[in-house]
Nucleic acid binder design. Structure first.
Lengths: 103, 103
DNA sequence: TGGATTTGTTCTACAAAATAGATACATGTC
DNA sequence: GACATGTATCTATTTTGTAGAACAAATCCA
Protein backbone atom coordinates (compact mmCIF):
# COMPACT_ATOMS: atom_id res chain seq x y z
CA UNK A 1 0.00 0.00 0.00
CA UNK A 2 2.75 2.46 0.88
CA UNK A 3 4.50 1.72 -2.38
CA UNK A 4 1.29 1.95 -4.35
CA UNK A 5 0.50 5.34 -2.86
CA UNK A 6 4.06 6.57 -3.30
CA UNK A 7 3.94 5.69 -6.99
CA UNK A 8 0.59 7.40 -7.36
CA UNK A 9 2.03 10.58 -5.89
CA UNK A 10 4.95 10.36 -8.29
CA UNK A 11 2.67 9.87 -11.25
CA UNK A 12 0.11 12.53 -10.38
CA UNK A 13 2.61 15.34 -10.00
CA UNK A 14 0.88 18.60 -9.07
CA UNK A 15 -2.44 16.77 -8.93
CA UNK A 16 -1.32 14.55 -6.07
CA UNK A 17 -3.82 15.24 -3.30
CA UNK A 18 -5.92 12.88 -1.22
CA UNK A 19 -8.94 12.21 -3.35
CA UNK A 20 -6.99 12.05 -6.59
CA UNK A 21 -4.55 9.58 -5.08
CA UNK A 22 -7.49 7.52 -3.94
CA UNK A 23 -8.97 7.47 -7.44
CA UNK A 24 -5.65 6.54 -8.98
CA UNK A 25 -4.90 3.77 -6.54
CA UNK A 26 -8.39 2.32 -6.70
CA UNK A 27 -8.44 2.33 -10.48
CA UNK A 28 -5.04 0.68 -10.79
CA UNK A 29 -5.50 -2.00 -8.19
CA UNK A 30 -9.09 -2.67 -9.16
CA UNK A 31 -10.37 -2.41 -5.64
CA UNK A 32 -11.99 0.32 -3.68
CA UNK A 33 -9.93 1.88 -0.93
CA UNK A 34 -11.52 4.05 1.72
CA UNK A 35 -10.41 7.63 1.94
CA UNK A 36 -9.15 6.96 5.44
CA UNK A 37 -6.84 4.21 4.19
CA UNK A 38 -5.30 6.60 1.71
CA UNK A 39 -4.74 9.50 4.08
CA UNK A 40 -3.31 7.32 6.81
CA UNK A 41 -0.81 5.97 4.32
CA UNK A 42 0.06 9.43 3.02
CA UNK A 43 0.57 10.63 6.57
CA UNK A 44 2.88 7.72 7.32
CA UNK A 45 4.87 8.39 4.18
CA UNK A 46 5.25 11.99 5.29
CA UNK A 47 6.31 10.94 8.79
CA UNK A 48 9.00 8.82 7.18
CA UNK A 49 10.12 11.72 5.04
CA UNK A 50 9.28 10.11 1.71
CA UNK A 51 6.76 12.77 0.75
CA UNK A 52 5.98 16.27 1.93
CA UNK A 53 2.78 18.24 1.71
CA UNK A 54 1.59 21.82 1.49
CA UNK A 55 -1.83 23.44 1.39
CA UNK A 56 -2.91 24.88 -1.96
CA UNK A 57 -5.04 27.95 -2.45
CA UNK A 58 -8.74 27.14 -2.58
CA UNK A 59 -10.11 26.76 -6.10
CA UNK A 60 -13.02 28.99 -7.16
CA UNK A 61 -15.35 26.08 -7.84
CA UNK A 62 -18.09 24.50 -5.87
CA UNK A 63 -16.62 22.66 -2.92
CA UNK A 64 -13.19 23.91 -3.99
CA UNK A 65 -11.54 24.07 -0.63
CA UNK A 66 -7.79 24.01 -0.10
CA UNK A 67 -6.09 20.78 -1.04
CA UNK A 68 -3.22 19.08 0.65
CA UNK A 69 -0.78 18.63 -2.19
CA UNK A 70 1.83 15.90 -1.86
CA UNK A 71 5.20 15.65 -3.50
CA UNK A 72 8.04 13.16 -3.38
CA UNK A 73 11.13 14.11 -1.42
CA UNK A 74 14.62 13.06 -2.46
CA UNK A 75 14.29 10.18 -0.03
CA UNK A 76 10.98 9.26 -1.61
CA UNK A 77 12.62 9.03 -5.00
CA UNK A 78 15.37 6.91 -3.54
CA UNK A 79 12.79 4.63 -1.91
CA UNK A 80 11.10 4.24 -5.28
CA UNK A 81 14.37 3.26 -6.92
CA UNK A 82 15.09 0.85 -4.14
CA UNK A 83 11.65 -0.70 -4.49
CA UNK A 84 12.20 -1.18 -8.18
CA UNK A 85 15.51 -2.91 -7.61
CA UNK A 86 13.94 -5.10 -4.96
CA UNK A 87 11.04 -6.06 -7.23
CA UNK A 88 13.46 -7.03 -9.97
CA UNK A 89 15.41 -9.23 -7.56
CA UNK A 90 12.40 -10.86 -6.09
CA UNK A 91 10.83 -11.70 -9.44
CA UNK A 92 14.06 -12.85 -11.03
CA UNK A 93 13.93 -16.42 -12.20
CA UNK A 94 10.15 -16.54 -12.29
CA UNK A 95 8.94 -17.01 -15.84
CA UNK A 96 6.42 -14.37 -16.79
CA UNK A 97 3.10 -15.85 -15.81
CA UNK A 98 1.32 -13.22 -17.83
CA UNK A 99 3.05 -14.35 -20.95
CA UNK A 100 2.40 -18.00 -20.12
CA UNK A 101 -1.24 -17.26 -19.64
CA UNK A 102 -1.58 -15.65 -23.02
CA UNK A 103 0.23 -18.47 -24.81
CA UNK B 1 6.69 -10.35 2.38
CA UNK B 2 3.98 -12.82 1.48
CA UNK B 3 4.67 -12.28 -2.18
CA UNK B 4 8.40 -12.52 -1.71
CA UNK B 5 8.06 -15.81 0.12
CA UNK B 6 5.56 -17.16 -2.39
CA UNK B 7 7.97 -16.43 -5.23
CA UNK B 8 10.82 -18.06 -3.34
CA UNK B 9 8.76 -21.22 -2.95
CA UNK B 10 7.98 -21.17 -6.65
CA UNK B 11 11.63 -20.76 -7.52
CA UNK B 12 13.06 -23.30 -5.10
CA UNK B 13 10.88 -26.18 -6.21
CA UNK B 14 11.62 -29.33 -4.21
CA UNK B 15 14.12 -27.40 -2.11
CA UNK B 16 11.45 -25.10 -0.73
CA UNK B 17 11.64 -25.56 3.03
CA UNK B 18 11.97 -23.04 5.83
CA UNK B 19 15.66 -22.34 6.03
CA UNK B 20 16.20 -22.45 2.29
CA UNK B 21 13.37 -19.99 1.78
CA UNK B 22 14.94 -17.78 4.39
CA UNK B 23 18.28 -17.84 2.63
CA UNK B 24 16.70 -17.08 -0.71
CA UNK B 25 14.56 -14.24 0.58
CA UNK B 26 17.37 -12.68 2.58
CA UNK B 27 19.78 -12.86 -0.34
CA UNK B 28 17.34 -11.31 -2.79
CA UNK B 29 16.05 -8.53 -0.62
CA UNK B 30 19.45 -7.78 0.86
CA UNK B 31 18.21 -7.84 4.40
CA UNK B 32 18.26 -10.42 7.09
CA UNK B 33 14.94 -11.97 8.02
CA UNK B 34 14.54 -13.97 11.19
CA UNK B 35 13.51 -17.57 10.85
CA UNK B 36 10.33 -16.81 12.73
CA UNK B 37 9.35 -14.18 10.18
CA UNK B 38 9.69 -16.71 7.40
CA UNK B 39 7.73 -19.49 9.04
CA UNK B 40 4.83 -17.31 10.11
CA UNK B 41 4.56 -16.09 6.55
CA UNK B 42 4.69 -19.63 5.18
CA UNK B 43 2.03 -20.67 7.65
CA UNK B 44 -0.20 -17.81 6.62
CA UNK B 45 0.22 -18.68 3.00
CA UNK B 46 -0.78 -22.23 3.78
CA UNK B 47 -3.80 -21.06 5.78
CA UNK B 48 -4.87 -19.09 2.73
CA UNK B 49 -4.41 -22.11 0.52
CA UNK B 50 -1.65 -20.60 -1.62
CA UNK B 51 0.90 -23.24 -0.66
CA UNK B 52 0.72 -26.65 0.92
CA UNK B 53 3.35 -28.52 2.89
CA UNK B 54 4.37 -32.07 3.67
CA UNK B 55 7.04 -33.55 5.90
CA UNK B 56 9.97 -35.15 4.12
CA UNK B 57 11.79 -38.23 5.33
CA UNK B 58 14.64 -37.32 7.65
CA UNK B 59 17.97 -37.09 5.90
CA UNK B 60 20.79 -39.33 7.16
CA UNK B 61 23.06 -36.44 7.96
CA UNK B 62 23.92 -34.56 11.09
CA UNK B 63 20.96 -32.48 12.19
CA UNK B 64 18.99 -34.08 9.40
CA UNK B 65 15.54 -34.00 10.83
CA UNK B 66 12.47 -34.04 8.65
CA UNK B 67 11.90 -30.94 6.61
CA UNK B 68 8.65 -29.24 5.91
CA UNK B 69 8.57 -29.00 2.17
CA UNK B 70 6.35 -26.33 0.60
CA UNK B 71 4.77 -26.24 -2.80
CA UNK B 72 2.49 -23.83 -4.64
CA UNK B 73 -1.14 -24.78 -5.05
CA UNK B 74 -3.21 -23.84 -8.08
CA UNK B 75 -4.46 -20.87 -6.11
CA UNK B 76 -0.88 -19.95 -5.29
CA UNK B 77 -0.06 -19.85 -8.97
CA UNK B 78 -3.10 -17.73 -9.64
CA UNK B 79 -2.11 -15.36 -6.85
CA UNK B 80 1.32 -15.04 -8.42
CA UNK B 81 -0.22 -14.14 -11.77
CA UNK B 82 -2.51 -11.66 -10.13
CA UNK B 83 0.41 -10.08 -8.30
CA UNK B 84 2.26 -9.68 -11.55
CA UNK B 85 -0.69 -7.98 -13.18
CA UNK B 86 -1.09 -5.70 -10.19
CA UNK B 87 2.60 -4.78 -10.18
CA UNK B 88 2.42 -3.90 -13.84
CA UNK B 89 -0.59 -1.62 -13.21
CA UNK B 90 0.87 0.06 -10.22
CA UNK B 91 4.21 0.76 -11.86
CA UNK B 92 2.73 1.84 -15.18
CA UNK B 93 3.67 5.36 -16.15
CA UNK B 94 6.66 5.48 -13.83
CA UNK B 95 9.84 5.82 -15.86
CA UNK B 96 12.34 3.12 -15.00
CA UNK B 97 14.55 4.61 -12.34
CA UNK B 98 16.99 1.77 -12.84
CA UNK B 99 17.53 2.70 -16.43
CA UNK B 100 17.71 6.38 -15.56
CA UNK B 101 20.26 5.69 -12.91
CA UNK B 102 22.55 3.83 -15.25
CA UNK B 103 22.32 6.49 -17.95
C1' DT C 1 -29.27 34.88 3.84
C1' DG C 2 -28.94 30.56 5.02
C1' DG C 3 -29.58 25.57 4.17
C1' DA C 4 -28.25 22.06 0.67
C1' DT C 5 -24.56 20.30 -1.94
C1' DT C 6 -19.91 19.36 -3.11
C1' DT C 7 -15.09 18.61 -2.43
C1' DG C 8 -11.85 17.88 0.70
C1' DT C 9 -9.26 16.53 5.24
C1' DT C 10 -8.80 14.72 10.05
C1' DC C 11 -9.77 11.60 13.75
C1' DT C 12 -10.51 7.18 16.00
C1' DA C 13 -10.52 2.43 16.17
C1' DC C 14 -9.62 -2.12 14.83
C1' DA C 15 -7.73 -6.11 11.95
C1' DA C 16 -4.02 -8.14 9.54
C1' DA C 17 0.74 -8.68 8.43
C1' DA C 18 5.57 -8.39 9.60
C1' DT C 19 9.09 -9.41 12.64
C1' DA C 20 12.11 -11.14 16.35
C1' DG C 21 13.83 -14.42 19.27
C1' DA C 22 13.36 -18.04 22.55
C1' DT C 23 12.14 -22.79 22.77
C1' DA C 24 11.73 -27.49 21.30
C1' DC C 25 13.19 -31.44 18.43
C1' DA C 26 15.75 -35.05 15.77
C1' DT C 27 19.81 -36.62 14.14
C1' DG C 28 24.89 -37.64 13.86
C1' DT C 29 29.51 -37.21 16.27
C1' DC C 30 32.83 -37.89 19.96
C1' DG D 1 25.59 -39.56 27.32
C1' DA D 2 26.91 -34.68 26.13
C1' DC D 3 27.26 -31.80 22.36
C1' DA D 4 26.84 -29.72 17.77
C1' DT D 5 23.89 -28.97 13.88
C1' DG D 6 19.99 -28.14 11.09
C1' DT D 7 15.36 -27.71 11.52
C1' DA D 8 10.59 -26.34 13.11
C1' DT D 9 7.17 -24.19 16.50
C1' DC D 10 5.52 -20.86 19.84
C1' DT D 11 4.73 -16.33 21.90
C1' DA D 12 4.77 -11.56 21.91
C1' DT D 13 5.23 -7.05 19.95
C1' DT D 14 5.45 -3.46 16.37
C1' DT D 15 4.07 -1.87 11.99
C1' DT D 16 0.95 -1.59 8.26
C1' DG D 17 -3.59 -1.77 6.24
C1' DT D 18 -8.28 -0.52 6.41
C1' DA D 19 -12.80 1.61 7.28
C1' DG D 20 -15.93 5.13 8.21
C1' DA D 21 -17.67 8.92 10.87
C1' DA D 22 -16.82 13.58 11.94
C1' DC D 23 -15.37 17.92 10.63
C1' DA D 24 -14.33 21.97 7.39
C1' DA D 25 -14.73 25.20 3.68
C1' DA D 26 -16.40 26.53 -0.45
C1' DT D 27 -20.39 27.35 -4.03
C1' DC D 28 -25.24 27.21 -5.35
C1' DC D 29 -29.71 28.73 -5.30
C1' DA D 30 -34.53 29.26 -3.30
Amino acid sequence: MELTVLLAVARLGDDAYGLAVRRDVSARTGRDYSIGAVYTTLQRLEDKGLVRSRATDPLPVRGGRSRRQFKLTANGTRAMREAERMAASVWAGIPSTIRLEQA
